[in-house]
Design a protein around this nucleic acid. Structure first.
Lengths: 215, 215
DNA sequence: GTCTATAGCACGATAGAC
DNA sequence: GTCTATCGTGCTATAGAC
């Protein structure tokens, strides 16, 4: 080996550069796909937002669809991580309350990702159908079991677990997906810190009271 | 005048034929736009679904955007008509309950329209921003006043009217916009009649209890 | 690894015969 | 009013110099 060009550090640096460019492209792609849809987005516009020549995108991601697929996968991971909160709770007031808070925070911090996911599902999930059928289905079944256990323990009213989960997804993601509409109805201004607190409070109050989990 | 070619009937027949073709094209366009988005939809595909040559579409609608705009406007009208129920009610249990039923029925009967609307709003409402700022804003203010009156009369708990309206929109439209996801989680089958009843019941139960309007 | 230049293709729109 | 044939544009993707 001797002092031959420190391959470990070199490789790491290369990987880092690649990761950096990929992250930059993915962030730009998420933004553009969310605003224009898959068909409306152009590789040229994504390249402009990322500050790179168009050809470089094709160097890191072979096709437009491969880039899109990676964007959707990233969002899905964020959803799943928020779900951990659900399991660590002793009862519905704590577990569902914390889950609503987490999902509302994601709607606030990652609205573009939520929109890309919503559009993908609305178009029939052509790219991520396998995730719906495996990971999401498993997750949903597991959480429905937790809700049923809480009902059996008398910690909340008997409600259909599936429809409760749909309501949780719908209400929280609405603040991301329909953020533009909410902003318009708010006089053209984005929700303030206080308004976000009010939104979280309202959602938690109505749903937790609605399922009889006021503690 | 005399017996000169009965212009009234002729014109009516012409108008009817025009209306028929327009309706046919609009139905096809709603379907294609909802499945592919504006950018992904092609005039050729819309023409194929409508069973007409592509050039005929441009005879009835000058541009792709004009056709799209008409589709979105039609959906907006359906939303507004469902809102009448809200006003005719004596209290929240009746008014909001009936509004949920009506919106759920629209999600079931016009899922494509709901999806086109959702996509349009998610992309920043480039085509119907004026409707958001005028008609929808006015409607929302009026309904918020009704809710505030019900609260003052002690017919329901004090909740933020705007966030309650967002929750009503989010939960009901979710069954249209995310219908594909719900179907997948339902084992790949569309919701049955009984399942739709369960969905309506769950949504009404949780929200009406949640706002203290159980009558 | 990066960029320029361009090939190849599909689209929206229209001209013009019927 | 209806349809065929086609024009011009703008896109994805790639070849090839650096």
């Amino acid at each position: 080996m001797a002092s031959s060009r420190a391959p470990a550090k070199r490789a790491s640096s290369k990987k880092e550069r690649r990761l950096e460019s990929e992250t930059l492209i993915l962030a730009a792609a998420e933004k553009v796909f969310s605003e224009a849809g898959f068909g409306g987005a152009t590789m040229q516009l994504i390249a402009d937002v990322a500050g790179l020549p168009k050809a470089n995108l094709h160097y890191y991601f072979p096709t437009k669809e491969a880039l899109y697929r990676q964007v959707v996968q990233n969002i899905f991971q964020i959803w799943l991580q928020a779900a951990d909160i659900f399991d660590k709770a002793d009862g519905p007031a704590e577990g569902i309350g914390a889950y609503i808070d987490a999902k509302m925070e994601i709607s606030r911090r990652h609205p573009a990702g939520s929109k890309v996911w919503a559009t993908e599902v609305m178009h029939g999930a052509p790219v991520i159908q396998d995730y719906l059928e495996t990971t999401l289905l498993d997750w949903t079944k597991g959480r429905a079991d937790v809700i049923r256990r809480w009902i059996d323990q008398g910690l909340m009213d008997p409600v259909d677990p599936d429809h409760l989960l749909y309501m949780l997804w719908a209400t929280t993601q609405h603040y991301a997906d329909f953020g533009h509409q909410i902003e318009t109805l708010n006089g053209g201004a984005a929700l303030s810190e206080d308004q976000w607190v009010a939104a979280k409070t309202s959602v938690k109050q109505i749903i937790l009271r609605g399922i009889g989990a006021t503690r």
